[in-house]
Design a protein around this nucleic acid. Structure first.
Length: 900
RNA sequence: GCCGGGAUGGCGGAACUGGUAGACGCGCCGGACUCAAAAUCCGGUUCUGGCGACAGAGUGUGGGUUCGAUUCCCUCUCCCGGCACCA
């Protein structure tokens, strides 16, 4: 960048002072200075501190708060720019805007950093927050920092604890056992991401599964509510609602009881259990006569009991229990099973059915048992084929396209049809058979209609340090005792250093040694902490009452909630959003809030991608290179990529395509360097222009430069306009055609920008519309008084239209255009309908659907006029020749299609 | 594997309700300015054939509906997100 700074005495300098306001404008666009002064103006006026005002329509605009990982990444910049554009736009439209920010400050990365660097998680987290807060401020987001919320502050998490105790009183929170990943060397529980190929990430030890007591939240009790209320969420993307509905997974079916045969019963009796039957759930009771085996989970009591008398089976059970419980792993792994030699009895025929232990049946889902119908279920078919189990056809298709199920599997085998070989239930439609069989089972006391959900209860216990302590005390005498409300919060000690070998809280007697609140005897404090999803399930409520030290939420929540616009990554489409909806409903049922749904409108933004380059050395791990360090060479249409190593040598690297920016792929771009080089406005403009918000966004250095160039060009055009002195007032009646054309272009752009930001949320097309306007304005070379008046109006519209996106530059440009009032306080302009009106417009002419020309017709031309104009057109005549048109399709204001 | 989404010039994308495919930007090519370069400004830029007017083809694949399909329906391929202890 170069360019001369004009001498203070030059004519240009003097003329760049706006005579109306005395404001002088620099010829050069200097983002650092512009951004500093605009931010000072907003901070000085506390422009974004929100106050409840019942007389104004509120707009609660919320972006998902960040995990304080150290520095902002581009995903944050994208997320928060979208929120900021909507907030600033709403503000200019007269809404009372709340846009808060906070920190999702508990979680695993702080513990990992502690182990890597020896810094306490609290210190690391707070340092990160301080740094990232500066970054957010430098980006000029219109945030109300007076409501900042940090989830690792006792003033926040005490309310997690308080509400947990209320849930416990209501039976929403309860205790039972759950399965965790156990690292036998480090003697610690591992998160799924810490288990790599079945081994602990640090020790490499084979991970075991352990059952330990945990606390659960009864989200399944709200399953119907969570599913039903999706219908109310008209402001949510359809795809997110579909994903949530599938996740909840409501299915209506039959619970069927298979009485145990004597062999199974006696084995369980030997193991000390008096069990009479196995229960299964199925949506296909019509296939009950096709049952040829029963599959149970490895953790099932019957499997454990059977294992004690069969070492081979025992080994298989142990193998299954070592395996992953992650759904993706279970679904893709090879289906394996072992027979137990034990039997259950068919509830209608009384015939024995053999019980198998199968690795694809999970104890945590349903009753841990599944009836096997190989003929009509693909998974059962695969299992039966492999293990030589009978395949009994009991349903045939209505169209008679096949008679018997035979390998290979066909999708239609699993479809509804007509029952056969099903005793008295043969010859019925599947649906009718389901009802009839369910009724018959019900009469015998061996079945009933039931609704089953895929959704499971939410386990919130974590055997980790950096989280919110669960406020319970275990007393030998009194059992499990809640910490009394007046002793909350249970404060997490902040000076501990995790070392990877278990939860440090358990090794800190000053934390866990307490007296029982009930009997006063020595007792042990719970050392598990809560899942961090708890913290993020209600932070949006706390922003409304952030300063209240006496209550979790207060009256102000009624004013601000629900959130009018929530913005966040698509990766949160299920868990975070579902938990937040659940938590809100629990709080509603406790009388704490009045809304049942927290987020009225949802925008799920796409990921930020960049190129990935790697090198695989002969020995050792794959190395990733930052795209900034990679040079591209092209020879004979073949591209190759190189990096220069520190010793000066060149290394050829592979191009691995596009992927989300991440540390592991070394393809991140640091927003900080971007802001330092080009300014916040360029970063914001590029993010908004490169793709619509819901799509993935590809990083492009050239695109960033283009964004910067555009702002500089806008600056220059305004500068040149301002240098010519202040404009005359506009006289609408005195305009010539060119002047009218620019006015029309300006108002067309305004209409487009208003709709694109306000309704469509496609900021890229809004920006494109302003670019077009600016192209028109720079071609417009009319120095007459009215020409300058029209130019002034067009530039004002361009600056206002861009101001939510590049607020700093527009702040300055608005003053340069002669205004005293700050642009953030300007009302969004209304459209001048007169400026949009036209006498004639262009119709596209097609012959047989192919474009053949254009005609210009009067706006009020009727269809007959249009037809004759089209048939008189030379090109049309050439294409239709002497033939008489079969049909002429006229689409008003758009096109005419002549069919011959 | 299951659920959800995506695919349009050299590149990012536009085309909103079935009606001009490629707005806007990037890159590239040519020109102006300059001693020169950068910056800036002006023009061109889907592909194929043609000096040109123009013609033909074209929205991941294959098919269908329609006067007309990037848009609706069916089929297949590839890529991305989620799958319950990463956040």
């Amino acid at each position: 960048m170069s360019g001369r700074v004009p001498s203070p005495l030059s004519k240009k300098w003097l003329l760049s002072v706006n005579p109306g306001t005395g404001f002088h404008m620099d010829e050069r666009y200097e983002p650092a200075a512009v951004e500093r002064s605009a931010q000072q103006c907003w901070n000085g006026a506390r422009s974004f501190a929100a106050t409840e005002d019942p007389s104004k329509e509120k707009f609660y605009c919320l972006s998902m708060f960040p995990y304080p990982s150290g520095r902002l990444h581009m995903g944050h910049v994208r997320n928060y720019t979208i929120g900021d554009v909507l907030s600033r736009f709403a503000r200019m439209q007269g809404r009372n805007v709340l846009q808060p920010m906070g920190w999702d400050a508990f979680g695993l990365p702080a513990e990992n950093a502690a182990m890597a660097n020896g810094v306490a998680p609290a210190q690391w987290t707070r340092d990160n927050i301080a740094y990232m807060k500066k970054q957010l401020q430098a980006l000029g987001f219109a945030l109300d920092w007076e409501r900042e919320v940090t989830t690792c502050d006792p003033s926040y998490y005490r309310w997690n604890q308080w509400l947990f105790l209320r849930m416990r009183e209501q039976g929403v929170a309860y205790k039972r056992t759950g399965v965790v990943n156990w690292d036998p060397i480090d003697q610690t529980v591992l998160a799924n991401e810490q288990v790599i190929d079945g081994r602990g990430w640090r020790t490499g030890a084979l991970v075991e599964k352990r059952e330990i007591p945990m606390y659960y939240l009864n989200i399944t009790a709200y399953a119907d509510d969570l599913l039903g209320d999706l219908a109310m969420l008209s402001g949510w993307p359809e795809r997110v609602k579909v994903m949530q509905a599938n996740w909840i997974g409501r299915s209506e079916g039959t619970e069927i009881t298979f009485p145990l045969a004597e062999d199974a019963r006696s084995v369980l009796r030997t193991a000390g259990q008096e069990v009479e039957s196995l229960k299964v759930f199925t949506t296909r009771a019509d296939t009950l006569f096709g049952v040829s085996f029963m599959a149970i989970a490895a953790e099932h009591p019957l499997a454990l009991a059977a294992g004690t008398r069969d070492p081979a089976l025992q080994e298989f059970v142990d193998e299954c229990r070592r395996g992953s419980t992650m759904e993706a792993d279970v679904a893709t792994m090879e289906k394996k099973g072992r027979r137990t030699g034990l039997h259950v009895l068919h509830p209608l025929t009384g015939k024995p059915v053999e019980v198998w232990v199968a690795n694809y049946v999970l104890m945590g889902y349903g009753e841990g048992a599944v009836m096997g119908v190989p003929a009509h279920d693909e998974r059962d078919f695969e299992f039966a084929s492999k293990n030589g189990i009978d395949i009994v056809t009991v349903v045939r298709p209505r169209d008679g396209s096949w008679q018997r199920v035979e390998a290979p599997w066909r999708a239609s085998y699993g479809e509804l049809g007509i029952t056969v070989d099903s005793g008295e239930f043969s010859g019925q439609e599947s649906r009718a058979a389901v009802t009839a069989i369910t009724t018959a089972l019900d009469k015998k006391g061996l079945g009933r209609k039931r609704v089953q959900f895929r959704l499971r209860d939410w386990g919130i216990s974590r055997q980790r340090y950096w989280g919110c302590p669960i406020p319970l005390i275990h007393c030998e005498q009194c059992g499990e005792v809640a910490v009394p409300d007046d002793q909350l919060p249970v404060v997490l000690p902040e000076d501990l250093l995790p070392d990877g070998s278990g939860n440090p809280l358990g090794k800190t007697p000053s934390f866990w040694k307490v007296d029982c609140p009930t009997c006063g005897k020595p007792a042990r404090r719970e050392t598990d902490t809560m899942d961090t999803f708890v913290d993020s399930s209600w932070y949006f409520l706390r922003y409304a009452s952030a300063a209240n030290a006496r209550a979790m939420v207060d009256e102000q929540v009624k004013y601000w909630l629900p959130v009018d616009q929530y913005i966040g990554g698509i990766e949160h489409a299920i868990l975070h959003l579902l938990y937040s909806r659940f938590w809100t409903k629990v709080m509603r049922d406790l009388g704490l809030v009045t809304v049942g749904e927290p987020f009225a409108n949802l925008l799920t933004q796409g990921m930020v991608l960049n190129h990935i380059y790697s090198h695989q050395p002969a020995v050792g791990r794959q190395v990733y290179f930052n795209p900034l360090d990679v040079d591209e060479e092209e020879q004979d249409d073949v591209k190759r990529w190189f990096v220069i190593r520190t010793d000066g040598s060149r290394l050829e690297v592979n191009y691995d395509g596009l992927g989300t920016m991440s540390k592991s792929k070394n393809n991140g771009v640091d927003p900080q360097s971007l802001v330092e080089k080009y300014g916040a406005d360029t970063a914001r403009l590029f993010m908004m222009f490169a793709a619509p918000p819901e799509q993935t966004l590809e990083w492009s250095d050239e695109g960033v430069q283009g964004a910067f160039r555009f702002i500089r060009r806008l600056w220059k055009i305004v500068y040149q306009h301002v240098c010519a002195g202040s404009a005359e007032p506009l006289e609408r009646a005195m305009l010539n055609t060119t002047q009218k054309d620019l006015r029309r272009a300006a108002y067309q752009a305004l209409v487009k920008v208003t709709d694109d930001i306000g309704r469509r949320r496609t900021f890229n097309t809004a920006i494109a519309a302003v670019m077009e306007l600016l192209n028109a304005a720079s071609r417009f070379d009319d120095r007459s008084p009215q020409g300058r008046a029209v130019a002034q109006e067009a530039l004002e519209i361009a600056v206002i239209g861009l101001s939510p996106i590049i607020p700093h530059a527009c702040h300055e440009l608005w003053k340069a255009l002669g205004h005293h009032e700050a642009i953030i306080d300007v009302s969004w302009p209304a459209v001048d309908k007169e400026a949009l009106s036209q006498d004639a417009h262009t119709l596209v002419v097609q012959v047989n659907g192919k474009l053949r020309g254009r005609i210009s017709v009067a706006v009020d031309a009727d269809e007959a006029t249009i037809r004759s104009a089209v048939l008189a057109d030379e090109t049309v005549k050439r294409f239709i020749g002497d033939t008489v048109p079969k049909k002429i399709v006229v689409v008003p204001k758009k096109l005419v299609n002549v069919v011959v």
